[in-house]
Write a protein that binds this DNA or RNA. Structure first.
Length: 413
RNA sequence: CGGAGUGUGGUGUAACGGCUAACAUGCCUGCUUUGGGAGCAGGUGACUCAGGGUUCGAAUCCCUGCACUCCGACCA
């Protein structure tokens, strides 16, 4: 894309109503637009990052057998009453609305009930199981307090997957398979080293633990106790000697850290399937309960976590796997023809490139490139051509080097 | 939801209860410039969040509402 066509612009100063680093940088660089507290729009650059994260999540969910679908945001009240999750006293962060005739509707905050209800129409026999379905869509939660930019919003993008199994053993096999795929997702996002599977409270429906995926960071609101050697952590909410004994850990091998919950997986047992009367028939013709699990990843939260985690004092630094573009090609001086030729040949080779063809000074182009944080910066200028080609610099490096066009293509392979 | 704070051109800030609300940046015109947010000149742009009140006089003081931020609580 030509930067002269990009409608967003960078800003030198962050808006005064944002204090979180992720929102400040993402707004300054033109990735997001704040609509209201906890509600952000994704502008072209932010949209590309979001879509890149979704792509990785999709690939990994498909790899473990997930089938993608998309449920609705508008929710009928009756299915939520069957599980006793409609009453505001039970679930207090609903957004609710109504039809013109007064019929109450919910605005989707999660999708266990509608998924179970829909799936139930197709699952009758043991031959129909197991099944895993997932979706990536906006969730709406009426949080009393939105905070920390993209980390805690009222409208946010989430991947939620649901598994349906015939037996506890089958469920556990799926559960572990998905947990494994989560590690792959975070590794591909560049967060593998600092993201820990974490024992957490299983909630009111099960006596088991649930598993959170916590990315260690000072911006986190959760306190976790981490064993670096065992690559496992324990959330403060279940940090007792009794619980630690259950999972084979002791307090002296754990260190206290702050974490951001970037995913969580729950064993739901038969709570929802039973409540919505969804069962299967075994090979003896007997009605059997369906064991369910659910698996969330905070997709838009990850945009904020990654933005903030990798940023330096000059701006964003995107991992290559999700960067909005791979190359930021900066044209300086009278090099428009050569820059265009290089831009086109890069595109021909399948490289995503942002060409800074704006009529602006070198300093402001460099400052913008640093702020936007595209992994590779390539400068084409009279000076670079004199010295034999192009200047190539990684966003994460301080200094660049002059290379030829062939060497550039080579490095981008 | 409890507590604290803040609302001034697009953005960031300033202004004792008292001149036509100032500065920077952005944006527009022209010229010059082109390797780290360039220079000069001219121009554009704010009923100071909304509504009420006090006062000869309110951006400034008071009340109500709304919005935003932070701390806490909450967070399948």
């Amino acid at each position: 894309m030509r930067q002269s066509h990009l409608f967003t612009k960078t800003r030198k100063e962050a808006p005064s109503d944002e204090t979180s680093k992720n929102a400040q940088l993402l707004i300054r660089a033109g990735f997001i637009h704040k609509e209201m507290a906890g509600v952000y729009a994704y502008l072209p650059l932010g949209m590309r990052v979001l879509e890149n994260i979704k792509k990785i999540v999709r690939e990994e969910m498909n790899n473990v057998g997930g089938q993608e679908l998309m449920m609705t945001t508008l929710q009928p009240k009756d299915i939520w009453e069957k599980t006793d999750r409609w009453d505001d006293k039970k679930v207090d962060n609903w957004f609710k609305t109504a039809l013109k005739n007064g019929t109450e509707l919910g605005v989707g905050l999660t999708h266990e009930e509608p998924i179970v209800d829909a799936i139930g129409e197709y699952i009758n026999s043991y031959k129909d199981l197991p099944v895993m379905v997932y979706q990536i869509q906006n969730k709406f939660r009426n949080e009393l307090r939105a905070k920390s930019g993209l980390l805690r919003g009222r409208e946010f993008v989430m991947k939620d997957m649901y598994s349906f199994a015939r037996t506890q053993e089958e469920h556990e096999e799926i559960y572990e398979r998905v947990a494994e795929s989560y590690h792959k997702v975070y590794a591909r996002l560049g967060l593998g080293d600092i993201t820990y599977r974490t024992y957490a409270d299983g909630g009111i429906f099960t006596k088991r633990f649930s598993d959170e995926f916590q990315t260690l960071s000072d911006m986190g609101e959760d306190t976790v106790y981490v064993s670096e050697s065992k690559k496992i952590a324990v959330n403060k909410e279940v940090y007792t000697d009794e619980n630690l004994a259950k999972v084979g850990l002791t307090k002296d091998e754990l260190v206290e850290r702050k974490g951001v919950e970037v995913g969580n997986i729950f064993p739901l047992e038969t709570k929802y399937t039973d409540a919505l009367d969804v069962h299967f028939m075994d090979n003896a013709g007997a009605k059997q309960p369906i064991i369910m699990g659910c698996y969330g990843i905070g997709v838009s939260r990850l945009v904020g976590v990654i933005a903030e985690h990798f940023a330096d004092d000059k701006g964003l630094v995107w991992p290559e796997s999700i960067a909005p573009f791979r190359v930021h090609l900066i044209q300086l001086g009278n090099t428009a023809d050569k820059a265009t030729a290089l831009y086109e040949s890069l595109i021909k080779k399948g490289t995503e490139v942002l060409l800074d063809d704006r009529d602006a000074g070198a300093g402001s182009k460099f400052a913008d490139a640093d702020l936007i944080g595209i992994p590779y910066r390539v400068v084409i200028s009279d000076k670079s051509l004199e010295r034999g080609g192009l200047e190539f610099k990684k966003r994460s490096d301080a200094e660049g080097a002059i290379i030829t066009e062939e060497e550039l293509f080579d490095r981008l392979k």
